[in-house]
Computed example of a mutant assay.
Amino acid sequence: MRAAVLHAAGSPDAFDICEVDRPDVGPDDVLIRVGACGVSFRDVVERNGTYKRDVSYPLIIGLEISGTVVEAGALVEDLQIGDRVCTKAFSSCGRCNLCRSGRETTCSRRRPVRGGYAEYVALPQDACVRTPADMPFEVSCGLGPSAGVAVNAVRDVAHVSIGETVLVTGATGGVGVPAVQIARAMGARVIAVTRSEDKRDMLSAIGAHEAVVAEPDAFAREVRALTDGRGVDVVIDTVGSRVFDAAFDSLAVHGRYAMVGQLYGENIAINPARIFFKRAQILGVGSVSRVQLEDAIALTASGVVQPQIARIMPLEEVAEAHRLVEGGAAAGRIILKP
């Protein structure tokens, strides 16, 4: 099968498009013929060496996978040949205390999903959730690491409620877009932040009540002005360190700061007094559970979540796809079709 293989961390040109063996299928695995694979920022930081967890070479990356089950191991019970599926970002054991108490995203035996930059990928059945037969692969491929994580952040961690004001950073990104859509559907007022004036119209189209166009460290004053000086009830931060100061300054007293992403390698520094004087809650979001992904699929099927697709590209253009995502040039998802 054809695959885009990394032999070491590097630039977008580090990918080697070559023929490799189809992966072996274990008793708990399914073999998926890849229909589409989104290019996520986790792919970018794995490729460039920033993200090192469980990384070894040679490596086929790609976690936003959708496709068709073509083979199933002897222990697979929930999926059948011919099922259309999309993936979580990891598989969990399903047996430990964390898994059995609804905290599977922190399972100590979790294994990352990778391998979507290829014609076929073998994954544990736990990592895969069935999708409707009429849902295009280009739509379903990113639902786990994008809409599913947004469900986790907006509904289950930040507990957004009707009438609150929510600030979303990186609002045109993979998690940002569904976070805007879900927060609006829950009755919140949504302020979306982007660096590009060209993306303002997109933010209005996906449901943002206001769009703030500013550099990462310079949007707090405008957000305060939009809220009559009060600030926002909730921050959904999909960017991380480079926007932290401005996003925290935008937070109202008793606000909740949900940290979803960290796209860069630097640390942040904060005087603890800023947290307790504001009575702020800083909340870690993490990944997506099976239930959250199932809910994200249902929200997409009903039209609440509407993934924005910028380009669909062949596997041979993976380097260009990474340049687009890393540079933040695309308004919407970049999708590979292996």
Rank of each mutant, 00 (worst) to 15 (best):
M1L: 06
A3G: 03
V5Q: 13
L6M: 12
L6C: 01
H7D: 13
A9T: 13
S11M: 05
S11R: 09
P12V: 12
D13P: 01
F15R: 06
C18T: 15
V20Y: 14
P23Y: 07
P23W: 06
D24W: 05
I32N: 01
G35F: 02
G38D: 08
F41E: 08
V45H: 00
K52P: 01
R53Y: 12
D54Q: 09
S56Y: 06
P58V: 09
P58T: 06
G62N: 03
E64D: 13
I65D: 10
G67E: 03
G67N: 07
V76L: 06
L79N: 01
Q80K: 08
I81L: 12
K88V: 05
F90L: 08
S91M: 05
S91A: 14
G94T: 02
N97A: 13
S101D: 13
G102E: 11
T105F: 11
P112Q: 11
G115Q: 07
G116I: 02
G116C: 09
Y117K: 00
Y117N: 08
Q125K: 01
R130P: 02
P132Q: 11
A133S: 10
V139A: 03
S140E: 08
S140F: 03
L143E: 07
S146P: 03
A147Y: 02
N152C: 12
R155L: 12
D156L: 12
I162W: 05
I162Y: 07
G174L: 09
G176H: 07
V177Y: 01
A179K: 12
A183W: 09
A185L: 05
A192H: 01
T194C: 10
R195T: 06
S196K: 12
S196H: 13
E197R: 05
R200E: 14
D201H: 05
D201E: 11
S204Q: 11
G207Q: 09
G207N: 08
E210C: 02
A211F: 12
E215A: 15
P216F: 03
A218M: 08
E222Y: 10
V223L: 14
A225D: 15
D233A: 05
V235A: 13
D237T: 11
T238D: 15
R242H: 14
D245V: 10
A246K: 04
S250H: 13
A252F: 15
G255N: 09
M259Q: 15
M259Y: 14
E266W: 06
E266F: 04
R279I: 02
A280W: 15
G284L: 08
G286S: 09
S287F: 13
S287M: 13
V288F: 02
S289G: 09
S289N: 07
L293H: 06
E294Y: 11
D295E: 15
A296M: 11
A298Y: 02
G303F: 15
I309M: 08
I309V: 14
I309K: 05
A310V: 02
P314G: 09
E317D: 14
V325Q: 06
E326I: 00
A329W: 04
A330G: 01
A331K: 00
A331L: 01
R333C: 01
I335E: 03
